[in-house]
Design a protein around this nucleic acid. Structure first.
Lengths: 254, 254
DNA sequence: TTGGATGACTTGTTCCAACAACCCGATGGC
DNA sequence: GCCATCGGGTTGTTGGAACAAGTCATCCAA
C-alpha cells in the first residue's frame, strides 16, 4: 500500500535525510550514479531523477567528470538597507567613496565594481516610478556588477532622469561614490526612499552574469529615492543572489 | 561549430522566446510532448528535459493527464512592513483586530488564518535572537497559516519569551489581534524592530503547506521586536511565497 | 435524466543502452 | 624534473520503449 511514492522520491528523501543529519557533510562527494544504482537497485535514470530533485532544492551541485557534491553554504553578507545612503552614514563614511565597498572591505574582503554608463529609455516600470512619460523619458543608466573576492556578488542598475544629472559626475563611467552622495553634491537631496523587494528565479542571463549555481533564487531590490518635494530622483535596482545575502532593516516605531 | 549546445537547451530557448513574445500566452496549453517530439524531431526524453528546464525557471506548470501550461502570474500583494505594527497604524486600525487581515479585506479578498499555540523550546537562532539560553529557553509559539480567498498565502510563526506573556491573551489559540497590539495590552511596548530577509528555495514541507508550484522561491522575513530598553519581546518569522508577495519599506533619511 | 463505465489522450515513472564531454591521476618520454 | 598523453571514472546528452496514473468527453445503461 505504501507504494504511491515514486522510487526517485524515496531515494531523494533518503539522501536528504543523510544530508540534514550531517552524515553527508557539505562539500562531501556523493557516491557515483553507478554506485547508487546498485545500492538502491534502480536504473541510472531513476538515480538521476532523485539527484535532480535535490539539486532543485539547492542541496546538491554536480560537476561533469568529477561527481555530485553536497552544496556548501555561503556565510551570507548582511546588508543594512536602512542606513545605506542615509546622510549621516554617508558623512561618516565619505572618504571611502562607496558604502558598499567600505562595508565589504571592513569585512576583510576585496570589493570591486564594473560600471557601465549609458543614456537611454528606461523600462516602462522604471519610467513610471520616476514619474516620467514612458514614451519619451530619457535616463542616465549606471549598470554595475559588484564583485567580492573576484566573485560576482550582485547586479546594481541605477536610473536617473537625464535632465537632473546632466553634466554631473554621475555621467562619468568611473567608479564614483555612492549615488546618494553624488546626488547631494549635485544639489539633489534625497530625504526619503521607498523600497520594494520581490523574489523570483533568475533569468538565464542573470544566472550567467552572476555565475549562480542551480536552484539559486534572487531577490530584486528596487529603491526609489525622493527629494523633499516628493520628486523622484532615481531608481536603483539591485539583483541579489539568495544564497549570499541577508537584507536587513532597522526601524523605530513612530 | 554551433553544436555545443544540447538539443534540449535549444528547444527550451525556442519555447522561452515564444513565451516571452506572447506567442504562448499565460494559461495557454503547450503542444503535447508527443507533438513536440515530431516538431523538433527528438525523443520524448529530450522534450521532457527541455520542459523541465522551463519549469525550473518558473515559466511552465504541468498537470498529469491534462498537459503543460504557460504559468500564470499572480498579481502580487504588497506588504508594507514599515507601518505594519507601528503604533499609529495600529491605533488607526485596532477595530479590525489584525492589520494583515484588514489589508486583505480592504483589497476585496477574503482573509483567513489558522492558529496553533504551543509552549516549547525555540530553535537555537530564535533563542539567541531573544537573548535567551538556547538550552533552557521556553517560548510561547504561535504558528499561523494565512489564507487569501481560501488559498494558502504565508506561514507566520511568532515566538515570545514564556515569562513575558504568561497569562496574557497571547496564550489563547483564538485569532486575536496583531502581536504588536496584544503586546501593548500586556504592557510590553515595542518601540523598535529589526528585520532580516533571506531568500531560498522552500523545503518540501513548506512547499506542501503552501501548495507552491515548482520553482517558486520563498522569502523568509524575520522580525525581532524590542522595547525601549532594548530587550527583545518577540521574533516573528514569516515565510512568503515569492510569486505572491512584494515586500515594501518606506524610510525617511535621517 | 443521471450515473457510471469506457476509452482516448496526456503527463509521470522506470528501465535499458550508447556515446559525449570532462576530470584526474598515472605513465612514460623528453 | 617536466610535460604531454592516455585511460579509467564520472556526469551530461540522447534515443527508444513500456506501463502507470490522471483527465475528460462520450456513450450507455439504469
Amino acid at each position: 500500500m505504501a507504494k504511491q511514492v515514486p522510487r526517485y522520491h524515496a531515494i531523494a528523501d533518503d539522501l536528504r535525510v543523510q544530508i540534514e543529519q550531517g552524515k553527508l557533510a557539505p562539500g562531501r562527494k556523493l557516491p557515483s550514479e553507478e554506485e547508487l544504482t546498485t545500492t538502491y537497485d534502480v536504473s541510472r535514470n531513476t538515480v538521476r531523477l532523485a539527484l535532480g530533485r535535490l539539486t532543485e532544492e539547492g542541496l546538491l551541485v554536480s560537476a561533469q567528470g568529477r561527481g555530485s557534491f553536497v552544496r556548501e553554504r555561503y556565510e551570507p553578507a548582511v546588508w543594512n538597507w536602512t542606513t545605506m545612503e542615509s546622510r549621516s552614514a554617508h558623512e561618516a563614511n565619505h572618504t571611502a567613496g562607496d558604502q558598499w565597498a567600505s562595508q565589504i572591505a571592513a569585512n576583510g574582503q576585496e570589493p570591486r565594481q564594473e560600471v557601465r554608463v549609458s543614456i537611454r529609455r528606461p523600462p516602462e516600470e522604471v519610467a513610471l516610478q520616476l514619474q516620467l512619460d514612458p514614451a519619451t523619458a530619457l535616463t542616465v543608466v549606471r549598470e554595475r556588477i559588484r564583485y567580492v573576492d573576484h566573485e560576482p556578488y550582485a547586479l546594481a542598475d541605477s536610473y536617473f532622469p537625464e535632465e537632473l544629472v546632466r553634466n554631473t559626475p554621475l555621467m562619468l563611467p568611473e567608479d564614483v561614490s555612492a549615488p546618494g552622495g553624488v546626488l547631494a553634491s549635485a544639489g539633489l537631496i534625497q530625504v526619503r526612499f521607498s523600497d520594494e523587494i520581490t523574489v523570483r528565479m533568475p533569468t538565464r542571463e542573470e544566472s550567467e552574469r552572476l555565475v549562480l549555481p542551480a536552484a539559486t533564487p534572487v531577490a530584486v531590490h528596487r529603491r526609489t529615492g525622493y527629494d523633499k518635494d516628493g520628486k523622484p530622483l532615481r531608481v536603483m535596482i539591485t539583483t541579489l543572489p539568495g544564497d549570499r545575502h541577508v537584507i536587513r532593516y532597522d526601524v523605530s516605531t513612530d
